[in-house]
Amino acid sequence: MGARTKARRRAIDLLFEAEQRQLNASELLRERLATPVTEVPLNEFTADLVTGVVGHWTQINDLLTTYSQGWSLERMPAVDRAILRLGAYEVLFSEVPEAVAISEAVALAKELSTDDSPKFVNGLLARLAEVKPTLV
């Protein structure tokens, strides 16, 4: 697993934990940067990803809700929400190529979520990439 893939996985872990504990992800990130809970401290890319997701939180949630076709955010598995938020941030707002962002999100869904999640994640993020020129 490459360094950026590991950083994405750690960003998903933080986003998921923050939601489960009903904490602000930025506050949890600051806490983990100040006092790491693992042997390896969070790297800059992980921090940038979490900060980026939080910075576009409302817009990302609105777009996921709009384009998820019959699935509200609340109905999605919590880990899928974290993966989709990160994937949407990378597809829409980062310098990461869209195909890479989608591929990484699908791989995380295969590893962390249900059997149906990779297809759902792929379809929703591909749709966001498709409509991106009209959004940003």
Rank of each mutant, 00 (worst) to 15 (best):
Trp57Gln: 15
Pro77Gly: 05
Asn43Phe: 06
Leu63Cys: 07
Lys132Asn: 00
Phe16Leu: 15
Val121Glu: 01
Thr58Phe: 01
Thr66Phe: 09
Glu111Trp: 09
Glu130Ile: 10
Arg85Ala: 01
Tyr67Leu: 10
Ala18Leu: 02
Glu31Phe: 09
Ser94Gln: 04
Val96Ala: 08
Asn61Tyr: 04
Leu28Cys: 00
Asn24Val: 03
Arg85Gly: 02
Glu27Ala: 10
Glu39Ala: 13
Glu19Leu: 09
Val54His: 01
Ala47Pro: 01
Ala3Ser: 14
Ala47Gln: 08
Thr66Ile: 02
Pro97Val: 13
Phe45Asp: 06
Ser117Pro: 09
Glu44Val: 07
Asp115Ala: 12
Asp116Pro: 04
Phe16Gln: 11
Gly70Phe: 10
Val79Met: 10
Val79His: 07
Gln69Phe: 12
Asp116Ser: 14
Thr5Phe: 14
Ile12Gln: 00
Ala34Leu: 14
Leu49Asn: 01
Gln20Trp: 08
Leu84Thr: 01
Met1His: 12
Asn61His: 13
Gly123Asn: 15
Asn122Met: 12
Ala3Pro: 05
Arg75Lys: 14
Leu23Lys: 08
Asp48Val: 10
Phe93Met: 05
Asn122Asp: 15
Gly70Arg: 09
Phe16His: 13
Gln22Leu: 06
Glu74Trp: 02
Glu17Tyr: 02
Arg81Ala: 01
Ala7Met: 12
Pro36Asp: 04
Val131His: 02
Arg127Lys: 15
Ile12Leu: 15
Glu98Asp: 12
Arg85Tyr: 01
Arg127Ser: 10
Leu135Cys: 12
Glu44Trp: 08
Tyr89Arg: 06
Arg85His: 03
Ala11Cys: 09
Leu42Ile: 15
Gly87Lys: 14
Leu33Cys: 04
Val40Asn: 04
Asn24Phe: 01
Lys132Ser: 07
Ser94Ile: 03
Val136Trp: 07
Val53Lys: 02
Gly52Thr: 04
Met76Glu: 03
Leu49Tyr: 08
His56Leu: 10
Leu135Arg: 14
Ile83Met: 13
Gly2Ser: 13
Glu98Arg: 12
Leu125Ser: 00
Arg127Tyr: 14
Leu29Pro: 01
Asn43Tyr: 08
Thr5His: 04
Asp48Pro: 02
Leu112Tyr: 12
Val79Ser: 00
Ala99Ile: 11
Val121His: 04
Leu33Ile: 14
Phe93Cys: 03
Trp71Asp: 04
Gln69Met: 09
Leu49Met: 12
Gly52Asn: 02
Val121Leu: 11
Ala3Tyr: 07
Val53Pro: 05
Asp116Lys: 15
Leu135Gly: 03
Val91Gln: 08
Asp115Thr: 12
Asn24Arg: 10
Thr66Lys: 15
Val53Gly: 07
